[in-house]
């Protein structure tokens, strides 16, 4: 019997499981991020960020998350390469948009763009918080507890750079497009769809994608407009 991890459905299974895991992370990430716009003093967000940085469960999850990203990315290339090989000669004229959405056909490109954004995003925040440090991060006191001023780091970027704001908005939209296909697709791959649930999952997927895109875009937009 063929190796499960390289069998066509096995490959998709890996993509689906890692994708669902990353979606869970995105929900949490979005939840914490939205704290940015509900308290202009930054205390609320700083508390959230501090909780994420210190909670033992989250600490355990962090490397897993990294692994999730890496697996999702490696398998996406593996899968795309094998699918590419399946059609050595292409069509001269193809009307693919009649039968499928652009996003569904270009998940690799969308994913790669999200990855580019991710690298930028890590350099902007994660790297500074975890590794290099940044003067903006100087500790503040919230409710009697010392913590890094992550709020300052984030709000500074968006207030001072419209370009970054727009890049982050684009990043949110790209992610939304990726998830618009990825959400129901991961359930389909796990075999958790039938005549009734396929339509429901596609509907929920659309709502989820719009919420993610809107949620992430609204933050830079808030800083762009308000400050």
């Amino acid at each position: 019997m063929s190796n499960f991890l390289t069998a066509s459905i096995g490959r998709k299974f890996i993509m689906s499981i890692s994708g669902l895991f990353l979606m869970m992370f995105i929900c949490v990430h979005l939840g914490i991020n939205l704290l940015l716009i509900f308290d202009d003093s930054g205390n609320l967000f700083n508390q959230g960020a501090h909780f994420m940085a210190t909670n033992p469960l989250i600490k355990v999850m962090e490397p897993l998350l990294g692994l999730g990203f890496i697996i999702h990315i490696i398998w996406s290339f593996l899968l795309s390469y094998q699918n590419y090989k399946a059609r050595p000669v292409g069509y001269a004229q193809s009307n693919a948009s009649y039968s499928s959405t652009w996003a569904s056909r270009n998940m690799l490109i969308l994913g790669a763009l999200v990855l580019v954004f991710l690298v930028l995003h890590i350099m902007n925040f994660f790297w500074k918080i975890k590794v290099s440090g940044d003067p903006l991060l100087e500790h503040v006191l919230v409710n009697g507890e010392h913590m890094e001023n992550t709020y300052a780091l984030v709000s500074d970027l968006f207030i001072n750079s419209a370009v970054y704001g727009i890049i982050y908005i684009l990043g949110g939209i790209l992610l939304g497009l990726h998830l618009g296909h990825g959400f129901w697709s991961s359930f389909q791959t796990l075999g958790l769809a039938n005549k009734v649930w396929l339509a429901r999952l596609q509907f929920v997927g659309k709502i989820f994608a719009v919420m993610v895109a809107l949620g992430f875009s609204i933050i830079p937009l808030y800083f762009l407009i308000k400050f």
Partner: peptide
């Protein structure tokens, strides 16, 4: 198992749920 293994062996690609086939 047997049918999927044969399909893979023959060089067909995998499903990425674009839905074009159904249409």
């Amino acid at each position: 198992k047997a049918m999927v293994a044969k399909m893979d062996e023959l060089g067909f690609g995998g499903c990425t749920n674009t839905g074009a086939c159904e249409v």
